[in-house]
Computed example of a mutant assay.
Amino acid sequence: MEKLINEIDSIVMETQQITKQFQKGDEVEVTSHKLGFVGSYYEATIVSIEDANHYRVKYKTLLTDDQSAPLEELVPIGHVRPVSSHQLGTTSENRFRQYDKVDVFSSDGWWFGFISGIIEENYYVHFPTTGQEVAYPSHALRFHQEWSNDDWEA
Rank of each mutant, 00 (worst) to 15 (best):
P128W: 03
V57M: 05
R56M: 13
V12E: 13
F143W: 09
Y59D: 05
L63P: 00
D26W: 03
G131T: 10
S92V: 05
A44F: 04
D9G: 07
W147D: 02
P128R: 10
S10H: 03
E133G: 08
T15R: 11
I18K: 12
D26N: 07
Q16V: 12
F127M: 08
V38L: 14
F22V: 07
H126S: 13
L62G: 03
H144K: 11
L63G: 00
I46S: 07
S84W: 00
V125Y: 05
Q67S: 06
G117D: 14
Y55D: 08
T91N: 02
H33P: 03
S10E: 12
S106V: 03
G109R: 00
E146D: 14
G131F: 11
P70E: 08
K60Q: 10
Q145G: 13
F143K: 03
I18V: 13
T91H: 03
E133Y: 09
L71P: 00
R97F: 13
Q21T: 15
V47M: 01
E146A: 14
H79M: 07
I49T: 12
K24A: 11
D51L: 10
G89P: 00
G131D: 09
R95N: 12
L74C: 08
T45R: 05
T130Y: 09
H33W: 12
L88T: 02
T64Q: 06
I118Q: 07
P128Y: 04
Y99W: 13
N149F: 08
L35E: 15
Y99F: 15
W110N: 04
V57L: 06
D9H: 10
G131Y: 12
S92H: 02
F22K: 04
G113C: 12
S84N: 13
Q145Y: 14
S116T: 12
S85I: 11
V38T: 15
F105G: 01
Q98L: 14
I11S: 10
L141Y: 06
V125M: 02
Y55H: 09
K101D: 13
T19H: 14
V28S: 03
T90F: 05
D51E: 07
L88Y: 09
A154N: 15
V102T: 08
L4V: 04
A154T: 15
H86R: 12
T15H: 13
H126T: 14
G39W: 01
S107M: 06
I77N: 04
S106E: 09
Q87M: 03
A69Y: 03
D9M: 06
N149S: 11
A44Y: 02
R56K: 12
F127H: 08
Q17L: 09
T129D: 08
G131W: 10
V28I: 15
G131K: 10
V134P: 04
E27V: 04
G25L: 06
K3R: 08
W111Y: 14
L63C: 00
F127D: 06
L141I: 06
W111S: 08
D51Y: 07
N6W: 00
N53S: 11
K34W: 04
I49G: 02
I49A: 05
Y55R: 12
L71E: 02
Q21H: 13
F143I: 04
V38G: 07
S107P: 00
K101V: 07
Q17T: 07
R95Q: 15
Q21I: 14
E120D: 15
S84Q: 11
P82H: 02
V80H: 02
E43N: 12
D103F: 08
S84V: 02
A52S: 09
A135Q: 05
L74R: 11
E27F: 11
L4T: 02
G39H: 02
L35Q: 15
L141M: 10
I77V: 14
D65W: 05
